[in-house]
Design a protein around this nucleic acid. Structure first.
Length: 576
RNA sequence: GCGCCCGUAGCUCAGCUGGAUAGAGCAUCGGCCUUCUAAGCCGGCGGUCCCAGGUUCGAAUCCUGGCGGGCGCGCCA
């Protein structure tokens, strides 16, 4: 909440108090929000519930409330409109509040002070025995954005890459490599080659079921902890793939605080199992060790040890939860993992609950939809890496970057370092597209839409930043001191200012709902206001006092847009 | 079969947790470059908010029941 909103809220509460309502009772009913239509005012209050409390008809109550909130140096007007009260801030006050706060980097526009929250974010976590394809991108970019958003709000964030470097998928890759692998080919192009092995294994295992048994045996040998061939194989493949993954991570601007894959918990699983057993919830079933969860409302039990004695995904996630709790003391642990694994995380949380472990409350699955591609009949269908039509992320990014390069050649041929800008804009277009819609929605991977850089796209927002940067550059680089600005000159920038004031609320909502798209859409809205404003408000040609005020506005808008983009992992080039 | 998710303009989606006349972008049609980047701006067209009940002063939003699509349901992750 901005200072202006805080002030308004105080005034409304005082007025409501004068009207005979108990302040504490009324407090939660004072819900100030943006009005349906901006023409109505800056902030609206539906007085239905307050009126009910006062025993008056809403329109009469709204009328009385509006007269009680007299104008002051912040509030310009309060007008009743039927059961609603519409408030307007003084334009100069809005400009002062926003521009000053942005300028000194104060919260909620700038990064907040430590707030005591500790948030673990388990994201990306790819199965490194598979190629890094488009499907891996969602968790990666969503998690990266959530890390940045929580950090901005003052949380201590632990971004964790819980690599899938253990278990059966890895064992299958080992088996394929040990049967028909070639070290030379592996070194040449690890990701491509492993994808070939992956496909070949799938094909051969279909014809020869013995392959899966072999893989299971290899996994058992690996998990024995002995220094054997399997372990050396595991090490080799793990290093190669991890290396190969650095490419995509680098291009996406993603980094991790901890890369602790499933294998990291190899020596921590027995302790975890002992803890489950000590809690008295472990049962034997058909030769396996399970925790039944009927009383938690989940029909299927959670398997923690297979009948051949080896561990499972759940075992490692459980060990990881204990480890994170003891190591980081998190208030929240977010698992940014596809919606198809909902049951898995419900089980994980239920097991911890049944064990009476407090960390259960921190566990929070952040599910997201699938990536779909257009099928032959125009129907949206799942990307299937198994059938071998997986699209490598690098190819997608390259295609977008190439398209951007063309656009640059066409629109801004004199741009220096077009290659770097193309990379920044092209990769962002793909990332932005992924973060634009609510995460639970399936992403429709539509080349035409993604390579169109007009409208609600990453380039659209970056373009706004570039235009602002250009103005500042042409002004000579010196932005006037905020303290010297006559804010009355910015009355015509009310739409920009109002939108800027919504920044904090957007970031907060994104964090609360684990929904980066709120920030993405915010950047679109602000960029739109800026584009509109710049059309008929020239900065450099204006009278000195107006010019100074507008320069400060431009500088603040650029800062805020840059921050917004940064929060979703996207750079803001100064020229494009 | 059971559980969960989704259903809003031709297409892709918002809709701030129940409020005012349901909003954007794309596509389409029309207008705007002698001044800071036209990857832009302004306007037109376009709606049975899947259907039927219910709760409420008020429902796209909450509840029940359908329909359509998707995902999941013990030794994979």
């Amino acid at each position: 909440m901005t200072d202006l909103h805080q002030h308004l809220r105080e005034r409304v509460l005082a007025a409501v108090g004068e009207m005979g309502l108990d302040r504490d009772v009324a407090d939660p009913l004072v819900r100030l929000g943006p009005p349906k239509n901006r023409d109505h005012g800056d902030v609206a209050l539906g007085s239905f519930q307050l009126a009910k409390l006062a025993g008056e008809p809403p329109p009469a109550f709204a009328d009385a409330l509006a007269t009680k909130v007299a104008p002051d140096d912040v509030i310009e007007s309060a007008e009743a409109a039927g059961p609603f009260v519409n408030f307007r801030f003084r334009r100069a006050a809005m400009a002062r509040e926003v521009l000053t706060a942005v300028c000194v980097d104060a919260a909620p526009y700038g990064r907040a002070a430590e707030n005591g929250q500790v948030v673990c974010i388990d994201f990306s976590s790819p199965n490194i025995a598979k190629p890094f394809h488009i499907g891996h991108m969602r968790s990666t970019v969503l998690g990266n954005a959530l890390c940045r958003i929580h950090r901005h709000l003052g949380a201590k964030v632990h971004g964790i890459n819980h690599l899938g470097d253990w278990g059966m998928p890895f064992a299958k890759m080992m088996t394929a490599y040990m049967r028909f692998g070639d070290e030379q080919a592996l070194h040449e192009s690890p990701m491509r080659y492993m994808f070939e092995l992956y496909k070949r294994y799938g094909k051969e295992a279909e014809a020869d079921p013995a392959l899966d048994a072999e893989a299971a045996a290899h996994f058992k040998a690996l998990e024995s902890g002995e220094d054997n061939e399997q372990r050396r194989m595991w090490q080799l493949l793990r290093e190669e793939s991890l290396q190969a993954f650095q490419g995509p991570y680098g291009r996406l601007g993603v980094s991790f605080d901890h890369i602790t894959g499933e294998s990291f918990f190899e020596d921590k699983m027995e302790a975890a199992m002992a803890r489950v057993e000590a809690a008295g919830v472990l049962e034997e079933s058909e030769g396996a060790e399970v925790v039944t969860l009927k009383e938690q409302g989940i029909k299927v039990p959670c398997l923690l040890r297979k009948s051949d004695g080896t561990t499972l995904y759940h075992t490692r996630d459980l060990a990881a939860a204990f480890y994170r709790e003891q190591q980081y003391r998190p208030t929240r642990i977010l698992y940014v993992v596809g919606a198809e694994q909902k049951l898995h995380f419900a089980q994980l949380k239920a097991v911890l609950t049944k064990m009476d472990e407090p960390v259960a409350d921190a566990v929070e699955h952040v599910p997201f939809g699938l990536v779909l591609s257009k099928g032959p009949e125009g129907k949206w269908e799942k990307f299937a890496s198994r059938s071998g039509n997986a699209v490598f992320l690098d190819e997608i990014l390259d295609e977008a970057v190439n398209k951007v390069r063309q656009v640059i050649a066409e629109k801004n041929p004199e741009l220096e370092d077009p290659q770097q800008v193309a990379e920044q804009v092209g990769v962002s277009a793909i990332v932005f597209n992924d973060l634009k819609n609510g995460r639970i929605k399936d992403v429709k991977f539509d080349w035409d839409a993604m390579l169109n850089f007009e409208g609600e796209t990453g380039p659209y927002v970056q373009y706004a930043c570039a235009r602002l940067s250009s103005i500042l550059r042409k002004a000579g680089g010196d932005v006037p001191d905020v303290a010297s600005v006559d804010f009355t000159h910015l009355a015509d920038a009310e739409n920009v200012l109002l939108t800027m004031m919504g920044f904090g609320a957007a970031v907060q909502r994104a964090a609360d709902q684990s929904e980066p798209s709120v920030v993405t859409n915010y950047t679109i809205a602000l960029a739109g206001e800026i584009h509109s404003y710049l059309v008929d408000h020239h900065v450099l040609g204006a009278d000195p006092a107006v010019r100074d005020a507008r320069l400060v506005l431009v500088d603040a808008a650029r800062k805020l847009l840059t921050t917004g983009l940064h929060l979703i992992g996207i750079p803001a080039p100064a020229r494009m």
